[in-house]
């Protein structure tokens, strides 16, 4: 996936390099600007079994800042924010690959370097034989208090992950 470009970023930014589970990495540019989650909307996307986006609704396009064409065909981790610990997504993948529904609070990265906060539900889609053929993710407005608790936990988890990487 292409690195984020300074010309797309709104405001002052910091630079991080994220390495994803498939071994690829990407330079991301991050600001502290939050796009508030709009009341009453749902962000909906579907992916194939590899997590490649196959459908994005209008709310997803609006909140992520990408066009639909830019989202379709990209791995869902295009939205991965450097404040999110890897363990959160590992837990999600283990859950959905086991055929179960995962729910959790997520900080997502926008194309312009800003972020938005969601309560996400990710579930597997099955064919008639019961095989997993893809995943659906539905995001909605989170409770502010629960979101803050989750972010505090993620900050701790992230610090531990970084300390472990430093020791490795």
């Amino acid at each position: 996936m292409e690195d984020m470009r300074p010309e797309d970023i709104v405001g002052e930014y910091r630079e991080y390099t994220l390495t994803y589970y498939d071994g690829t990495s990407r330079k991301v540019l991050v600001t502290d600007i939050e796009t508030p989650y709009p009341d009453g909307k749902l962000i909906v996307s579907t992916t194939d079994t590899e997590g490649v986006i196959t459908h994005a609704n209008q709310a997803f396009v609006d909140m992520s800042g990408y066009t639909r064409e830019e989202l379709i065909g990209q791995p869902h981790y295009i939205l991965r924010h450097p404040d999110m610990p890897k363990a959160a997504f590992r837990d999600m993948w283990e859950t959905i690959q086991a055929g179960k529904t995962w729910r959790g609070y997520v900080k997502n990265l926008r194309k312009d370097g800003g972020y938005y906060l969601v309560y996400a539900t990710v579930m597997p889609n099955f064919d008639k034989q019961g095989n997993i053929v893809g995943y659906t993710s539905v995001r909605r407005k989170p409770s502010r208090r629960k979101m803050e608790e989750a972010l505090a936990l993620y900050a701790k988890m992230l610090a531990e992950e970084k300390a472990q990487e430093g020791r490795a």
Binding site: L42, V44, T46, H55, T101, T121, M123, N125, T136, V138
Partner: peptide
């Protein structure tokens, strides 16, 4: 229809 069912399940 499947898409709608998934939305309902998620909610």
């Amino acid at each position: 229809a499947d898409f709608m069912i998934n939305l309902i399940e998620a909610l």
